[in-house]
């Protein structure tokens, strides 16, 4: 084998399963960003009665490991219930692939993160979360830490771009230290709406850009 990948990784990379989009998906979630390296979008269709994942598809702007993990992870999850899917980790995916080179393991984490985000969003949407905690600034911050500024590849929390967060009567207002004419204003706004909009007690999300940073 000329490359440091198992036969199964190569097989999934060359002919990935479950590729594409699902129309009217129950959940669509994107993890990573083109700037930070890899990016993976996941679509889920779930049976409303049984909560079994009927269909799952993915798209990848990523390397061989990312594509192979997306392929095998969607295979593993299909037909499982949402609760079962929540327990699947990146380790399960890597094991199923027969291992990945150590520098490449992080690529598999992205796919698993996308799955967990998707599960979380679905459960929130369907009111399956057992303990309904009110949305706090901390929860909003943890959600925002998945939103990446495509220009730098760093998430908006780590990059210190969150100026203020206000939560009042179901309305969340996030103010970012980024200028209105920042190249990726629309992408960042869309990501934030996706990450906060589904929370059970959130009725509206407002994103404000005010800053001088480039």
């Amino acid at each position: 084998m000329p490359v440091p990948y198992t036969k199964l990784v190569i097989e999934h990379f060359k002919h990935p399963h479950n590729v594409g989009k699902i129309k009217n998906a129950d959940v669509k979630v994107t993890e990573g960003s083109p700037a930070c390296g890899d990016m993976l979008t996941l679509f889920l269709k779930v049976d409303p009665e049984t909560h079994i994942i009927k269909d799952i598809k993915f798209q990848s702007f990523g390397c061989a490991s990312n594509i192979a993990t997306g392929s095998i992870l969607t295979d593993i999850v299909k037909g499982k219930t949402i609760e079962e899917a929540a327990k699947i980790t990146w380790k399960d995916a890597v094991e199923a692939l027969g291992g990945l080179p150590s520098v490449k393991v992080h690529c598999s984490v992205l796919a698993a993160d996308a799955l967990h985000s998707a599960v979380e969003i679905y459960m929130e949407k369907k009111g399956l979360v057992k303990e309904k905690k009110p949305t706090t600034k901390e929860i909003v911050m943890s959600k925002l830490s998945h939103v990446v500024d495509p220009l730098t590849g760093i998430d908006v929390v780590r990059a210190n771009l969150i100026k203020t967060i206000h939560i009042k009567e179901g309305i969340v207002t996030v103010t970012l230290d980024l200028p209105k004419d920042h190249q990726f204003v629309e992408n960042i706004k869309e990501e934030i709406l996706e990450r906060l909009g589904y929370l059970w007690d959130v009725t509206e999300v407002e994103v404000i850009f005010e800053g001088l940073k480039k």
Partner: peptide
């Protein structure tokens, strides 16, 4: 699309190139 994926697929076709991708 990502460079490592491109170069690996080209390698399967017998073509040797490299990429500036972080991956």
């Amino acid at each position: 699309i990502e460079g490592e994926a491109i170069s690996l697929r080209l390698d399967f076709e017998g073509i040797a190139v490299i990429t500036g991708s972080a991956c």
